[in-house]
Amino acid sequence: MNTSTPDRFLIPTLSACNFVIGIGAFSLIGFLEPLGADLDRSPAQAGQLMTIYAVAYAILSPLLVAVSGNVGRRRIMAAGFVVYALAALVCATAPNFAVLGIGRILAAAGAGIFTPLAAAVAAGLYPEERRAKVLAAVFFGLTISQVVGVPAGSWIAYTFGWRWALWMVFAFALPCIWLIWTRVPAGLKFQPVTLRDLRDVVGEGRLMLAIGFTASFIGSQYVLFTYVAPLLSSTMGFGRDGIAMVLMVAGFGAVAGNILGGYLSDRAGWRITLTGMCMVQMCILPLFSLLPVSVPMLFVLVFAWSMGSWSFMAAQQVRLINIAGHRAPVVLALNAAAIYFGAAIGSALGGAMIVGYGLTSLGVTAGFAAAFALAHLTLSARLSPLNEARS
C-alpha cells in the first residue's frame, strides 16, 4: 500500500468524477418521456435503457477490474473515464435506439472501471477509523448529481432536447480525465487482484449473499425511481418544471442521506444502519400509490424517501471492506455491479407492473421489495463471515 500522505484534492477529485458519472447514469430518469417521444418509444420501453446500462455494468465492472489488477490505478481509472466520455458522445449523437443502447453499454464499462477503483483507492489510503467518512465523501458526488445534475438534465432535455443533456455529460467528462491524471498518485498499486480472486469471491456463498443485499435494496428503490417522472405526470399533472423540482428535492434528500449514512455507520454499526433504512423504506414507498397528494406533502415524502434510499451506501461498503481483505477492489466492483443489477431488476419489475396494473401500483410493489431486502439483510448478516452488530 502507498503510505504517503494523500493529495488533499484526491477525494474531491474522485467525488467530482462520480458526480459526472451520476449525471450520465441517472439523468435519463428525468427525461424518459421526451426521449421516448423522439425515438417512438413508450416510457416503459425507454426505461429499458436503464436496464441495459445496469446489466452491462453488472457484467463488465468486476471483469474489467479483475483483468486490470496489475495496471497502475491512475492509468486504468483515467482510461475508464476516456471510455465514459466517448460513450457520452455516442449517446448524444445516436441516430436510433439501438446505437443509444450501445452507448449506454460503453458508459457502463467506463463507470464500472472507475467507481469501484475510486472506492478502493480511498479505502486503501486512509486509516480504518476514517473509512466510512472517506467513502461517503467519495460517493458524495453521486448524491450531488441527484441535487444538481439530474434535475438540470431533466430541465435541459424538456427545454432544448434530450441530446443536449447528454452533450452536457460529455463536456463535464473531459476535465475529469485531466483531474484523475494529475491528482491520483502515479504508480499507485495495492495487492493486485486477478480473475482467480474474482472466481474465489463469486464462489464464496456467504460473501456473495452479503454483496447481494445491495441488489435487493437498490432494486426496491428502482421499482419506483425509474418511472417517477411518468408517475408524477400522470397523477400530479407535473410537467418539466414540476418534475425537475421533485428531482431536486430528491437530490437534497440524497445528500442528507449520504451524510447520515456515514454518521450512523461510524457510530451505530452497519447492521443497525442498514436494518433501519430497510424499515424506513417499507413505510414510505407504499405511500406513492396514494398519489395525488398536496405538493408540500409530496416534497416531504420525496425527501424522506430519497434520504432513506441513499443512507445505506457507506454502511454497506464498510461492511464489505471489512470482510474482503485484500480482495476489496473485486468485492467493491461486485458491489457496484450489484447496484446496477438491482436497478435492472427494479426497473424491469416496475415496467411489468405498469403494463399489468398501472403506474399507481409502483409504490406498493416497491414497499414489498423493501421488505424482501430486509429479509435478505437479516439472513446475510447471520451467515456473514463477520457476524457482528458493529464492524
Rank of each mutant, 00 (worst) to 15 (best):
N2V: 01
T3F: 06
D7L: 03
L10Y: 03
L14A: 05
A16H: 01
C17F: 02
G22M: 09
G22T: 11
I23P: 03
I23K: 08
G24M: 08
A37P: 00
R41D: 01
Q45H: 02
G47Q: 01
T51D: 01
I52F: 00
Y53I: 00
A58G: 12
A58F: 12
P62G: 10
L64T: 11
V65P: 08
N70L: 11
N70M: 11
V71Y: 08
V71P: 02
R74E: 01
A78T: 05
G80C: 05
Y84T: 05
A85V: 04
L89V: 14
L89F: 14
A92I: 11
N96I: 11
V99K: 13
L100R: 05
G103I: 07
G103N: 07
I105A: 13
A111G: 15
F114Q: 02
F114I: 06
T115F: 08
L117S: 03
A118E: 04
A119F: 09
A120I: 08
A120Y: 04
A123K: 05
Y126S: 13
F139I: 09
T143I: 11
S145K: 07
P151W: 11
G153K: 05
S154Q: 14
W155S: 10
A157P: 02
T159D: 12
G161Q: 07
R163D: 06
W164I: 13
W167M: 13
W167N: 06
V169S: 07
F170R: 03
F172D: 02
W181D: 03
W181T: 00
R183Y: 06
P185W: 07
G187M: 07
L188W: 08
P192T: 13
V193W: 04
R196T: 15
R199H: 12
V202C: 12
G203F: 09
E204Q: 15
L207R: 09
L207M: 14
I211W: 03
T214E: 02
A215L: 02
G219M: 05
Q221P: 00
L224W: 04
A229T: 11
L231K: 05
T235A: 15
M236H: 04
D241Y: 11
A244C: 09
M245L: 13
V246Q: 08
L247H: 06
F252T: 07
A254D: 06
G257T: 09
N258F: 04
L260F: 15
G261E: 02
G262E: 04
R271T: 09
I272F: 09
I272A: 13
I272L: 13
M282K: 06
L287D: 12
M297I: 05
L298I: 03
V302D: 01
F303D: 04
M307C: 13
W310Y: 15
S311A: 15
A315G: 11
Q316P: 08
Q317D: 09
R319Y: 15
I323T: 12
A324I: 14
V330H: 07
V330S: 09
L332N: 06
A336D: 04
A336K: 00
A337N: 12
A338C: 08
Y340H: 15
Y340R: 07
A344L: 10
G346T: 12
G350A: 12
G356C: 03
G358A: 08
G367W: 01
F368V: 14
A375E: 00
H376E: 03
T378R: 04
L379G: 00
R382Q: 14
L383H: 10
L383E: 10
L383T: 13
A389G: 15
S391G: 00
S391H: 14
